[in-house]
């Protein structure tokens, strides 16, 4: 789910435990937010599972945080 453009699909299923979030965070959420939190956490797990299906080469390294734009020869 993209952050700045709404894309459906994040909240497809629940199942992840709300217990993984700290108590103080849970305590202040409304009932609606708690329900959505469950689905959001499930979404995180889905994303994690999806990315694990795309294996990266073992020698690959993270992009430099402020230099993700490629230095590429211009034509």
């Amino acid at each position: 789910m993209l952050t700045l453009l709404p894309v459906p699909g994040f909240a497809q299923s629940s199942g992840a435990s709300i217990e993984v979030v700290e108590k103080q965070l849970k305590a202040k959420l409304s009932d609606d937010a708690k329900k959505l939190l469950s689905t959001s956490l499930a979404g995180l797990n889905q994303v994690s599972a999806a990315r694990q299906r795309f294996a990266l080469p073992e020698n690959s390294e993270p992009a430099t945080i402020f230099r993700a734009v490629p230095a590429r020869k211009l034509t």
């Binding site: 979030v21 937010a33 939190l37 959001s40 990315r51 993270p62 945080i65």
Partner: peptide, 23 residues
């Protein structure tokens, strides 16, 4: 509200995968 709360649980391994994927 829910999405932000959940996002605190993003795994470091997922984030680093994404940065590696960026390459």
């Amino acid at each position: 509200v829910a999405g932000f709360a959940a996002s605190l649980e993003t795994k470091a391994t997922d984030y680093l995968w994404a940065l590696r994927f960026r390459n």
